[in-house]
């Protein structure tokens, strides 16, 4: 297993695009999630000129345990950048035809796929750890008092976030294997959420129960939007088991379809 991961990392670590895309990803992910307070301050200063007064310290954005859900939710948007790297990595193998040579040299097709999936696991885990560290530090800075009970509450959002990223990267990997061209794959990847939204709007009146089962919807349901709570609305402030099961099932389906496609085709 580790050997297969090393093989894929060997391909990536000397590839400049990989460092640039991953660097940009972790940089924007880190700065955005860490600078929420600065953003709120800016918003207030804008509001002040209109005579509105908001006391931002009363919005417990970075307070434990709110910070866990808030930050994992915001971080979820950045997974698209990471997924582009996955698309580039897999479509390169087809355009250079190196997948063919890898198999000729003695990787089985499933080993080839596993090496890619393991990289997805690693990227998802690194994202999760990074987001956790940022949330922990910002939480410690901005929480008025640090109560161990609050810190340890709602940590399951990180599992949900990990699954969210990994599921999306699995989807990107599958699209890359099916389409094999990077540009087209990225366009379809970006549009997939939109296409699903159109489907959702159309089936809403007939089979609304189906909506949570749609792939992109199930992925975004893992960490629900937390912000309405600050305007006193009810939100789902927990990870629902059903959304984990549905997204987990889709993740399995994505990777299994990728396996079937790779197994059946002439490469």
């Amino acid at each position: 297993m580790l050997h297969l991961l090393q093989i894929d990392l060997k391909k990536l670590t000397s590839y400049r695009t990989f460092w640039v895309v991953c660097g940009l990803y972790f940089f924007t992910l880190g700065t955005t999630t860490a600078s929420g307070m600065e953003f709120l301050k800016w918003l207030v200063s804008m509001g002040a000129s209109f005579g509105a007064e908001i006391n931002i310290t009363r919005i417990p954005f970075y307070h434990f345990p709110d910070v866990w859900q808030n930050i994992t939710f915001v971080s979820g948007f950045f997974k698209a950048i990471l997924s582009f790297m996955v698309v580039i990595s897999i479509t390169n193998e087809f355009s250079y035809r190196t997948v063919r040579q890898n198999v000729i040299d003695g990787l089985s097709r499933s080993q080839f796929l596993i090496s890619k999936v393991l990289t997805n696991v690693l990227l998802s885990a690194m994202s999760t750890i990074m987001v956790f560290v940022i949330a922990l530090i910002t939480g410690m800075i901005y929480s008025p008092s640090i109560i161990m009970g609050d810190v340890l509450t709602d940590l399951e959002f990180f599992l949900a976030y990990f699954l969210e990223v990994f599921a999306f990267l699995s989807f990107a990997l599958l699209l890359g294997i099916l389409i094999q061209r990077s540009g087209l794959t990225i366009v379809i990847l970006v549009l997939s959420r939109l296409i699903e939204a159109i489907i959702m709007a159309n089936i809403d009146d007939y089979v609304p129960w189906m909506i949570p089962y749609l792939p992109m919807e199930s992925i975004s349901n893992l960490v629900p939007m937390p912000f309405p709570r600050y305007v006193f609305q009810e939100i789902q402030d927990y990870v629902s088991i059903s959304s984990v099961l549905i997204a987990g099932a889709w993740t399995f389906v994505f990777n299994y379809l990728a396996y079937l496609k790779l197994k059946k085709s002439d490469i």
Binding site: K11, S14, Y15, R16, N92, Y96, R97, T98, R100, Q101
Partner: peptide, 8 residues
């Protein structure tokens, strides 16, 4: 020949 063009 098939190789990764960006690798040495």
């Amino acid at each position: 020949p098939i190789f990764y063009p960006y690798l040495t």
